[in-house]
Amino acid sequence: MNIYENFVILNASLSDEEITAAVTRIKDLVVNAGGEVIRADHWGRRKLSYEIKKQAKGFYVLFVYKAPAATIKKLEELYKVFDPVIKFMVIKLGPKQIKHLEKALAAEAEQKAAAAEKAVAEKAVTEQAVKSEA
């Protein structure tokens, strides 16, 4: 199993529903081909630095997968014939990049946990305030 980073540029004129459907199709292919989707970040519609397939804008999605090489081969075959995709790039991460990714994921998980804890604490404070008012 390797870790891959995959940028996909989708046609920006697609509706949000069509974008979601395209992203789902990509995720499903990876999972069905024995991979795991670690990340699927929507960067959204951005101006392209140069025109691609007569498009000035694109909808960027950044995926990160844990997958065997065969999965990526299948994925690339899909991209070549999948109309919503105007450009893609797959990169295999090196050990240093993987370490960096693991750190980032851990930090995000910690942040999420802290935010959840804070929400619970705030709720308790509000309830306390309501009680003392009553």
């Binding site: 940028f7 540029i9 951005r46 630095s49 140069y50 691609i52 960027y60 450009k87 790039m89 990169i91």
Partner: peptide, 11 residues
């Protein structure tokens, strides 16, 4: 080269 490839930088 990678950034240019995905058009977040221009040639």
């Amino acid at each position: 080269m990678r950034a240019r490839n995905i058009a977040i930088l221009s040639f």
